[in-house]
Design a protein around this nucleic acid. Structure first.
Lengths: 249, 249
DNA sequence: ACCAGTATTGCAATTTTTTGCAGTAATAAT
DNA sequence: ATTATTACTGCAAAAAATTGCAATACTGGT
């Protein structure tokens, strides 16, 4: 097998699944892990994909900065995203915050699902545009450089004029005592506005973020209706959330 | 066997299988590996296939992921973008429509330039985010699936509340008689609103779009202050625009 | 037909590239 | 902090590319 062929196969794999593990490549194209790593390095240098710990992920056009450091957390986010799509029904109006978990959610929305999605995130909007049956409405405003979502008065204003069925609120930190917290003040204001704009709040959270606290508070844990992690609902890491009147998935 | 015959057979093999190994060629056309290598080198130089370590692969196969099918127009857009950046000064507030030319403009903005940019385009916004000194403000609204820019009432409303120094208005068709035209009604409305929101209109246009007309009208040619093409200002293709009180760059 | 000049081809010596491995450093999860 | 996984580095064997060279075939003009 020619090296260029291998690289093509790898690239294809990344396109389809958004990620690929080194061990999978080695298996797929029958080379050693080292060679697979070198191939990925070349593709990375050619800017065809992004090399990360454990493999590679696709180089979304809009996610230059918003990206993961390893492939395993993507796997977890995928599990979370799959659980989250189960909550959606055609005809609903949905609000998606930013973050990689919501990007993954946007990516795995079933093609048939016809919903309206509001989002202040470039990356999420970009993923949603690929879905034929999803109407995408961008929340405008000043773009925060690092999180790549619209923030500030304009955005909050726009949010104040809508009421959606459900909001998928990505969050950096969640704690059964302190609730949801965030380190960026502007984003906190956005998320508060998003909560006000939604009838129901779903928090998709990767388990690493459980029981961590940041500087500024978004809301109490009781304000969240559904908590989704990649863990089984009966996992003991979720114990402290069990008596909070939250649905845990 | 004649060399041209061999080359034809090799080319055919590449067409059919997307790839060929040197050893296979040597076998197939009964020549030494060295000659096979030379044949491939010639075909490579003739741009009939891509020579790689160990053999060759078809250009189509290789280019599948290289999206720049239109290398020349990218070069032209770059030239236009460079001219356009010359119009900008730090401190200005700018409005960028969508389109690949404006994306290119966003991409080549000098790092030192400190401006504020409004845009309804995901792609342009994403490019602008990479610039440290540029404040990016996203125009929100319903996203048009094909052009990937925000359109509709919300977006137009937001535009009605701003007045920018200059608007770079990408356009699909420009004609010295019919003015600027577009085939998508919603985008026409957006561009009209963008014109109202700007003190000065700059139209970056690739020369292929000169003297073409589409279904719906955006504005008269006189509403444009500066026309930028990749051509020299004295080029005869620009003749009909010369008496319209427009600056041509 | 002859000859000088040119192109093609195969071969051998040399250099470069690729690949897997082993030891070590770095990273992520518990 | 510890452990398991993954990444990086240098190395050596194998494969392929390059180069120079000689033998052969072909070309155009005489």
């Amino acid at each position: 097998m020619l090296k260029e062929e291998r690289k093509q196969i790898i690239l294809n794999e990344v396109m389809v699944h958004n990620r690929v593990l080194l061990t999978d490549i080695a298996e797929l194209v029958k080379v050693s892990i080292d060679t697979a790593r070198r191939d990925i390095k070349e593709l990375h240098d050619e800017k065809k994909l992004k090399k990360v710990h454990g493999g590679a992920i696709s180089l979304g056009f809009y996610n230059h900065n918003v990206q993961d450091k390893n492939v395993y957390s993507i796997e977890k986010k995928l599990q979370i995203a799959r659980k989250a799509t189960g909550l959606l029904k055609s005809g609903q109006v949905v609000l998606l915050s930013g973050g990689t978990t919501n990007m993954e959610l946007a990516r795995v929305l079933p093609p048939g699902l016809a919903i309206t999605c509001f989002t202040p995130s470039l990356a999420v909007a970009s993923q949603l545009l690929a879905k034929q049956n999803v109407e995408v409405i961008l929340i405008g405003g000043k773009l925060s450089k690092d999180s790549q979502i619209a923030v500030g008065g304009t955005a909050i204003n726009m949010l104040s004029e809508i009421k959606v069925d459900v909001c998928f609120l990505g969050t950096n930190s969640i704690d059964s005592g302190q609730g949801l917290t965030e380190f960026d003040w502007e984003i906190v204001q956005m998320k508060k506005a998003m909560i006000r704009a939604a009838k129901k709040i779903v928090a998709p959270v990767i388990s690493e973020k459980l029981n961590t606290v940041q500087r500024y508070k978004i809301c109490n844990i009781e304000d969240v209706d559904v908590l989704i992690t990649e863990l089984a609902p009966e996992d003991k890491a979720l114990e402290s959330f069990r008596d909070k009147n939250i649905v845990i998935l």
